[in-house]
Design a binder for these strands. Structure first.
Lengths: 144, 144
DNA sequence: AACGGTGTTGTTATATAGTAACATTTAAGA
DNA sequence: TCTTAAATGTTACTATATAACAACACCGTT
């Protein structure tokens, strides 16, 4: 999806959810989209400062939290960063693949196996709120 | 496994791997074992300072990194913490379940589903180096 | 025992990440 | 318009992690 398309989908999704994609949140989302792969909060902060002259960490963290909550971004804890959700609108989070060589990030669609995992967790009485599934390694392009 | 048993298994495993479980690493491992659930690096640092009078962050991080590398601990990125590996000696990392209510952590044994995931990643040409699979939610005891 | 290399630990300083608390502004309804 | 809730600004701070270099300990060789 191109950036304009993503922004349109973001607008739509926020409207659906009854939450507001304000100017600031929109700007932060665009800054994240402007990068490839994983983006760090302080990178976004620097970008934002360039565009607006001044900004403090909470400004960025609040916007990023909102965007994660809205399902537009995912937080990648293992990298202290954020990625754009590849599946806006179709709700499922996948398995995140991070290449240590080129830094690229992909969301692998693996619904059946993930469902199995969730069921096994549920079988132990565990009620899942969030998932955070990440594999680190070498992508096809880099493993040559 | 009790603590003494774990330390014995740790000794054995390090010997197998040809790496050294030095006095410092041993002490750090014991400090981690002394806690339930997730332990933070700076908590270990504080404990270590209590026992030895002085210690700096790199001392602790190096020891923790070593212990993770040796397969005795897992790093839980989503919590910036470490947990004791439940399966020392039998090599498989599982799926980590973290309860947001009581803070308890369990490693769920889910080899078949995890294998499927890995195969799906591999099918895309991705060579897995590390995995980091975590579910957050409520454990059986807390969901009542 | 003396030497030299490797790995471990100590030390200082600093980089990076994230949040608490309160003030101010904006938006939306009564 | 007034009021209230949400959003943003601001200051200060806490928490997490690493770089870089120095000192030391261990181990095999001469």
């Amino acid at each position: 999806m191109d950036k304009a398309g993503f922004m349109a989908a973001a607008d739509h999704q926020c409207q659906q959810q009854g939450v507001k994609l304000t100017a600031l949140r929109r700007q932060v989302l665009e800054l994240v989209l402007a990068h490839e792969g994983v983006v760090k909060a302080y990178q976004v902060l620097a970008d934002l400062q360039r565009e607006r002259g001044i900004a403090a960490p909470p400004t960025v963290y609040r916007a990023l939290d909102f965007l994660v909550e809205a399902g537009l971004l995912h937080k990648v804890d293992a990298l202290n960063g954020y990625i754009v959700c590849s599946h806006v609108g179709c709700c499922h989070e996948g398995l995140i693949l991070v290449c240590t060589a080129c830094g690229s990030v992909n969301e692998l669609e693996a619904a059946p196996a993930l469902d199995t995992l969730r069921q096994q967790a549920a079988a132990q009485g565990f009620a899942i709120a969030q998932q955070n599934l990440l594999l680190t390694g070498l992508c096809q392009a880099c493993r040559v």
